[in-house]
Design a protein around this nucleic acid. Structure first.
Lengths: 193, 193
DNA sequence: CTGATTTTGAACTGAACGATACATAACCAG
DNA sequence: CTGGTTATGTATCGTTCAGTTCAAAATCAG
């Protein structure tokens, strides 16, 4: 009975995400979002309520795809050490391909911190899922012998997350691929046998 | 002959810096800057030309004091490894004392990247000075035996800078002091003998 | 005291901000 | 075809944005 949508909601979120990723939250106007998504103002507000809510959706979409990709690598073949190396390598390549926009999560943390709303919730959820994934992989690495004995999986998970954040900032700085790989190699050398 | 200033320029820059640090570049309005500095709009524009120029001044002031502090630690007593540990420890404590605002440099990199103006120049200068300082200290560490043989000082410098950036993002995430120290310890373990 | 010079405060500029109002258009069950 | 419902486009809301204008105030060399 109602008039149907003329656009795909997920596609719109994805386009909005790229706009936010490129210019940051404050740096993206509602006008920018209309142009990026191809929607009129009415459609944007009718569908997503507010700029902030659309940002929350965009952020959740970003973390979802990013975490799925990371999880797929960690669920793949190889020793734990090899899989962790693959995650860092993939992070570096993504950073370089994305035209130095860095990581939307890290950029948002830097710009907004962890606000007390849906945006902060998405950030917290991303942190938790990353730490859980890394912790599990480190446990496996201690068992399969590719990682050192006596490592605290939770600490190493924090260390790996911090390392990826550092790489993301490097990308934003304009560092070379070579430097980024050197950093990843050094970081891994602290935990591999 | 001219009417004298009623305020101290450096003090004003410092207050503006804290405003930018707290809310980011886009998130700080010229009105916020007037209130933070206690100056009228005319004085702000008469003295600093534009919001962006004042941001450049604020950023340069921040990097200057931050680098001086870091340099003082690296010029202090102890082995190179001990001094590097002190730098990371000091970074962590600063992060926690600063009410989780993170690092103005990292926040700015995340928000703006490296723009092609005075702001970008300040960011590049900060990166260069950090890398130079760390590189020198690593060289000393290889000589005094506190760091491993065969390390590439330039690579390790990038690694250390990336580690501090990662710690800064952790602070923004709300991580615990304990986690941050665990990360710093792990990071150092990769390069200490 | 005067006059050249600069700072200061208040009012103001046009543009852009996020968000809304509302008439019109499009759909489909009945 | 009609009526109920939602989507859309346009025009607009009041506010805030970065930055300017300008007269009044303050200084001190002469």
């Amino acid at each position: 009975m109602p008039r149907p949508r003329e656009f795909d909601e997920t596609t719109a979120v994805e386009k909005a995400m790229h706009a936010f990723w490129e210019h940051g939250y404050e740096g993206t106007s509602t006008q920018d979002l209309c142009e990026a998504t191809g929607l009129g103002r009415s459609s944007v507000y009718n569908t997503f309520t507010s700029k902030r809510a659309l940002f929350g959706r965009s952020l959740a979409h970003y973390t979802g795809t990013q975490l799925d990709k990371r999880q797929a690598i960690l669920d793949g073949p190889g020793t734990a050490a090899e899989r962790l190396a693959a995650v860092l390598g993939s992070t570096i390549e993504d950073d370089l391909e994305e035209h130095r926009r860095g990581c939307l999560v890290v950029n948002t943390l830097a710009e907004l911190g962890v606000p007390d709303d849906e945006v902060g919730a998405a950030l917290r959820a991303d942190t938790d899922r990353n730490l859980t994934m890394f912790t599990q992989c480190v446990r496996e690495g201690v068992l399969d012998g590719s990682l050192r004995d006596g490592l605290d999986p939770a600490d190493v998970a924090e260390y790996l997350l911090s390392t990826t954040s550092g790489l993301r900032v490097m990308a934003r700085r304009g560092s070379s691929r070579k430097s980024m790989h050197a950093v990843a190699d050094l970081a891994l050398s602290a935990i591999t046998r």
